[in-house]
Design a protein around this nucleic acid. Sequence first.
DNA 1: TATTGTTATACTCTATAACTATA
DNA 2: TATAGTTATAGAGTATAACAATA
Lengths: 157, 157
Amino acid sequence: MSDQKPPPHAPDSGAADFGILDDLIGYTLRRAQLHVFQDIIETLKPWDLRPAQFSTLVVIGANPGLSQAALADLLSVERSAMVKILDVFEQRGLAERQPAPEDRRRNAVLITAAGRSLLEQASAKAREHEARMAGFLSSEEKASLMANLRRIYKENG
Amino acid sequence: MSDQKPPPHAPDSGAADFGILDDLIGYTLRRAQLHVFQDIIETLKPWDLRPAQFSTLVVIGANPGLSQAALADLLSVERSAMVKILDVFEQRGLAERQPAPEDRRRNAVLITAAGRSLLEQASAKAREHEARMAGFLSSEEKASLMANLRRIYKENG
DNA sequence: TATTGTTATACTCTATAACTATA
DNA sequence: TATAGTTATAGAGTATAACAATA
């Protein structure tokens, strides 16, 4: 039926059998996530933001004054990883750590004007990225997909 | 309304705003994938298999004789990463490399009887894992979810 | 005693380049 | 010239333990 030449490393890699993988949500999630991340990584490159940095900046911008531990908890990263992300943000002038007066162990993390500006530019491009990735879904389809994904990771922890 | 104590690192981490992240398929995919992977990693631990090793063994088992490059291409890993996975498989007696007679650059990769046995045991546990992760979805809901995820990563590359 | 921020360390993954042998 | 397998290396990301300051 097809007169296309198979890739040079055949035998049969075009008609391969993925066995149980086709029934595993984890494998399918992983493939989709990798594809979407390749695009968002390229999308954010002009602002020198990695995905974890972008998501951190979004949450800082939307929730001024959270502690580092609260940020780490919300984003499911280790406290020690959050330290490095915030070190870079402070060096770049995107966010600040302010000692919290009511609990001197804590830093209240705040976005700067420069951070806000960069966040808005990056978010605009992220919306274009989103249209590339999920634009073929109707809004009902996308809402259903997102709801089911959230059920997966909120079902337990 | 709630008399539960907030986590110690509040302010407000329970009612935090995720901003644009709630609309980004990539963020939601990532969270779901991390959650499912934590479970599959624990599930496969008794067989000392990481997720990438398990998926490789599945494809070798279902497609005997593929070259290393074909395997790498199918699973979207680098050829150089496949070398290491197969080194471990050979050391453990789970798979073999056989020189391909028709093209002496290639190795035909074959699963061993021990590899097949381990694969079947691990697959049985993977099915239990799948029920834990996606059991709350009806078969129609799961089929729709999987189809949409595949559309995301097959839409382009 | 427990939590917060920090540092150090180790381990896994990933990406890249270079090399050889084969085609 | 291009491909297959390999090696080496560097960069992310992640996980863990330990420490000082504070609660």
